[in-house]
Design a protein around this nucleic acid. Structure first.
Lengths: 104, 104
DNA sequence: CCAAAACGTAACCAATTGGTTTCTTTTTAG
DNA sequence: CTAAAAAGAAACCAATTGGTTACGTTTTGG
């Protein structure tokens, strides 16, 4: 069972989960409500994200709150940046988007 | 069959192939020599990379030369950068590495 | 106190993945 | 011309993935 960050973000559902918890912590049912699939299916994705260290799960009463812990994404950034000369044109678009975001 | 860039780079062998062809174009046997696995196995990885647009294959005689076409990696950079506030510490390390690399 | 909520877990399943060996085709070197 | 090199393609296989339903456990609201 390979369990690294690259594999973790390969699945679109997991990327969406990351997006959701990056704004604010969510419990499992809240997260599952965002998807067509069953709650246990989402739970499985959460387990993978947890095992890769991309989320932290905090038990609070009968609920489990998932919050983002995305420092490991730096690993991806590092890898992808070593090839930045190949995607310079896209970088322009990237910078524009980031600046636009900063203005808010 | 999902075939996007995120899934393409999820496999360590494919990341290594990308690393190899990013320096200079390589034919299939040259690439296969770098791995324990059989040539057809490498060929399969190449097909995926090709289908995702990360490499371009140019037939030259009886050889096929693979060269890097990594602009699609910008998609990854874009995604990961939207969470950059989570990996700022790693970014320092990243910048250091990139500068060190530039000095060579 | 107890029914219901919020989960995790187990058992199961189909499809995909990542590998293999074998065979074929195209091209070139001698 | 022909043997060998380069590589795709097919058939196959085991393990993993991503989903399901069913069930068990802990916690809480009324």
């Amino acid at each position: 069972m390979r369990r690294d960050v690259f594999q973790a973000i390969a699945d679109p559902t997991r990327r969406e989960i990351i997006g959701l918890v990056s704004h604010e912590s969510r419990n499992v049912n809240e997260l599952a409500d965002n998807f067509e699939m069953s709650r246990p299916a989402v739970s499985k994705h959460l387990r993978i994200l947890k095992e890769c260290g991309l989320i932290k799960v905090e038990k609070k009463g009968r609920e489990r709150f998932c919050h983002a812990q995305l420092d490991k994404l730096g690993e991806i950034a590092l890898w992808v940046h070593q090839y930045r000369r190949f995607w310079n044109t896209s970088l322009d678009k990237l910078e524009a988007l980031l600046k636009e975001e900063d203005n808010k």
